[in-house]
């Protein structure tokens, strides 16, 4: 198995490992939430498998009817990117809702606070300013 290692295989194994290491490092340093890293990790592992097990790529390309096996790699990569982008759109939409709700609560809280302050003000003026 190992006597036929090609240069591209070594490069892609190193590439996949570097990618996985980068993702893991980001999670470790809390710069990336585990929930959002799942897709990246899955596809990192898929690429690692594809780099190590070259026959596998040929095999699956044959099953799907792709004549040029590396094209399968591109396909997987495009699917990965689309999935991650959809995930982003979902997150953006949900954050949009949350930010809206937050803004509304802040605005409503601020107005009820202003009202309470107005109600308290006359008594404050009667007592003069408290020294604090």
């Amino acid at each position: 198995m190992f006597e036929h290692i090609e240069r591209i295989q070594i490069i892609s194994v190193i590439g996949s490992l570097t990618f996985l290491a980068m993702i893991i490092r980001l999670i470790k340093h809390k710069m990336l939430k585990e929930a959002y890293a799942i897709l990246w990790l899955i596809f990192g592992v898929v690429f690692l498998i594809c780099s190590v097990w070259k026959k596998g790529l040929d095999y699956f390309a044959g099953i799907v009817g792709i004549y040029y096996p590396p094209a399968l790699l591109f396909l997987i990569m495009i699917i990965a990117l689309i999935l991650v982008l959809i995930q982003f759109s979902i997150i953006v939409s949900s954050q949009n809702d949350k930010i809206r709700q937050l803004s509304q609560e802040v605005a409503l809280l601020s107005i009820s606070w202003q009202k309470n302050k107005k109600l308290e003000e006359p008594s404050d003026n009667a007592k003069n300013k408290p020294d604090c």
Binding site: R100, S103, Q104, V106, A107, L108, S110, I111
Partner: peptide, 12 residues
């Protein structure tokens, strides 16, 4: 007068 902390659009 309620001041929204950010521009939310008419709906918000």
């Amino acid at each position: 007068v309620i001041d929204m902390p950010a521009n939310l659009g008419v709906g918000g």
